[in-house]
Design a binder for these strands. Structure first.
Length: 210
DNA sequence: TCGCTGATCATCT
DNA sequence: GATGATCAGCGAA
């Protein structure tokens, strides 16, 4: 098959608002190669961050040195350092010149689980390996060094492969933000064991439509 | 299972 | 100088 054509379709797929792209990324896989081996994960939870219109987005106040990648072409990784100790990974959306990104919040490890366990010693449950944005980044071995990596360039060590969804999609409020927290822009696969347990709002009966 | 807290630093005001 | 798209560990219920 023509890898170039596939990449072109993916580019078009990603050059849309994050709100549209985010739910469709669920079930897709991300592969990251390294000297130690490859790790393959299947996305189970994501969050949409739009551009300047979204008060919770890093792009809210326009482009800065850190957020420059978000304003560039779609299909690249936006990796940022958070809370002084964690890395978080986004996939850039929207056409070149417009900001938007999808935060990768959780995933199931499909391949390379031995390597992931070496990277995350002390984690027992398999579902916890990549549950949460910082854990996901750690599992993949991604850091600020990978900021700007083009997921659609075959020579990149990180690759995005669209996949078939196998479960229903749920949505709800985003996690860990103050502004725009009421927007239901977090999406996850129903019943996926690796989905974050965080439920902001403290509503115990936070049952979302099936 | 839930809720609180400390750790720790790049980025921006 | 303040802030944060977080996590792990702890104690209480």
């Amino acid at each position: 098959m023509g890898a170039g054509g596939l990449a072109l379709n993916l580019r078009t797929f990603l050059a849309r608002p994050a709100l549209q792209v985010a739910p469709e990324l669920l079930g897709a896989t991300v592969r990251v190669d390294s000297a130690e081996g490859a790790v393959l994960i299947r996305l189970t939870e994501v969050e949409a961050y739009e551009g300047p219109a979204d008060p919770a987005s890093h792009a809210f106040r326009g482009p800065t040195r850190r957020t420059a990648v978000m304003f560039g072409p779609p299909g690249r990784l936006y990796v940022y350092f958070s809370y002084g100790m964690h890395w978080c990974v986004n996939v850039v959306c929207q056409p070149d010149g417009t900001a938007g990104a999808v935060l990768l919040r959780a995933a199931d490890v499909v391949e390379g689980i031995e390597l992931v366990r070496r990277r995350r010693p002390g984690v027992r449950a398999e579902r916890d390996l990549a549950r949460g944005p910082a854990r996901l980044a750690a599992s993949l071995g991604l850091t600020g060094h990978d900021d700007g990596t083009d997921l659609l360039d075959p020579s990149s060590r990180a690759q995005l492969v669209t996949g078939r969804r196998t479960a229903e999609i749920c949505n709800g409020p985003r996690v860990g933000i103050s502004a725009g927290a009421e927007l239901p822009w977090r999406f996850w696969l129903s019943g996926a064991p690796s989905v974050s347990r965080f439920r902001p709002g403290k509503t115990r009966s936070g049952r979302l439509t099936t």
